[in-house]
Simulated assay, not measured.
Amino acid sequence: MLACATAFGGALTTPAAAAPKPPPVSDFHGVNWADPRDNYADDAVVPSGLSTSDSYATVYAKSKAIIRGFDKLGANTVRLPVNPTSVNGPFWKSYKGAIDAATAQGFKVILGYWEADNAKDGRIDDQASYDTMWSRITSAYGRNSRVYFEPMNEPFGYTSQEWRDVAADWVTSHRSVPRDRIVIGGVKYSEDVKPVCADPRLNGTRLALHNYGFWHTDWTSYDQWKQDFEERIGDCASRTILDEFGATMTSGLDYDGPVNGSSEVAYIQAATDTIRELGMGSVYWPGLRSGDTYSLTTLQGTGTRLSLRLNNESGLNRLHWAWNQDGGTGKR
């Protein structure tokens, strides 16, 4: 606090600057950057384009190029996977280059824990290594206001009560992390945020919702999908980030056009309308994952000279609509 002398010999204090207000969830315009094998990995999870043999400088340079590609899409957020092998092992020193490159370009980064593929039971694989992982992550990025922490992706192995207990324990164990930088997944496949939203122990945290069109391929009605989204969200939209949703982007589907019996078109139109109307955050799955037909982009180039090629213009238009950006198109 600064002080200056007055004409009467006293001191006049100037109040310290207020802490920046946390962004609303509607400011999360994001994409997932995922491992080509999916983020369920027995070994280190490695997003497309990176390698465990890369140095920190190489990861940083590659990530800078890829994040620049996401920025051109209109994104300002990237969701990255972590697991104990990635963080507790030698790759962490290099992997931090991806986080650092993203935050240096003004991106928000959501770090989410994925369990190993050889377990994949929807529960934390090993509590001790999990705790060590989060301790290392929060020690490195707890003071970086652009980094957010998602304790677990899709905790489907827990009952609602069990998962809320696990999440509450995480919040208590990391009480130095501001609650608005903690993203708690909904119950089961992060498919319903209402129980988490209602738990007072988790007040102030963000919520992560997942919803996919392949869960109900027989639904070709826009209204049916719209109702489904709204039922999963309840009155918790102001805290909710839809941090996984996606559909086929490599088959030429026109997401700007009429549904014409396509469950995927109906789903994407309902999802993006819901995001916009309710002021939610959203992180598309995936912005980049090599070999994934849902991937919004394809990685091009070699070495650190990388770029992204858009796979579906209408899919991006729908994201721009959800994000309230110029060029987006609403329901047709």
Rank of each mutant, 00 (worst) to 15 (best):
M1P: 15
P15A: 07
P15V: 06
A17F: 06
A18W: 03
G30S: 05
A34Q: 13
P36L: 09
Y40C: 15
Y40L: 15
A41M: 11
S51P: 09
T58I: 11
A65W: 02
V78S: 08
F91H: 13
K96F: 04
G97T: 08
A101L: 04
A104C: 07
A140T: 13
G157F: 00
T159C: 10
D165Y: 13
A168G: 15
T172P: 00
D180N: 14
V183N: 10
I184C: 04
G186T: 11
V193F: 09
L202P: 11
G204P: 11
R206D: 06
W215F: 08
T217V: 12
T220E: 01
T220F: 01
D223T: 13
D228K: 12
G234W: 01
D235L: 00
S238A: 13
D243N: 15
G246P: 01
Y255D: 05
N260R: 14
N260S: 13
G261T: 04
Y267I: 01
A270K: 05
W285H: 09
P286I: 09
G287S: 11
R289A: 12
G291W: 01
T293N: 13
Y294K: 12
S295Q: 07
S295T: 15
G301I: 07
R305H: 14
L310A: 00
L316T: 06
L319P: 09
G328T: 02
